[in-house]
Amino acid sequence: MAFTKAMTDKMSRLSQLELTEAVASNLKLDSILEWVGELKVCDTEGIDPMFSTAPFNMKMREDKKISTPTREEIFFNTSNVDGDKKFFSIPKVIETK
């Protein structure tokens, strides 16, 4: 399976990475995709996919609220905050949803 330019474009768009063609070719995506493609010769007829090895049932949480961190802690690692320190702030987004 060749990693076409269209694929590179789509995948970098989906993953929000700015990937130039030169960088993409250096990533050797072709060979890796081809290599993982070898899986197809493994016989998995009638086998369900396995998404976790956990042999136990998941323990769910009780519906209890716990007090939240302070805004100071919430905003500790960013400067993308409005002047009043009440919101995260980003360049104006034209609403698309």
Binding site: L14, G37, L39, C42, D43
Partner: peptide, 26 residues
């Protein structure tokens, strides 16, 4: 990230991600 995105993308998901997850069970 690019490869991981690819194996989940439509057209690849079954042949790659699901296939690998089946191999995992085998």
């Amino acid at each position: 990230i690019i490869l991981g995105t690819t194996v989940l993308a439509s057209g690849f998901y079954d042949a790659y991600f699901i296939k690998a997850s089946k191999v995992r069970r085998v």
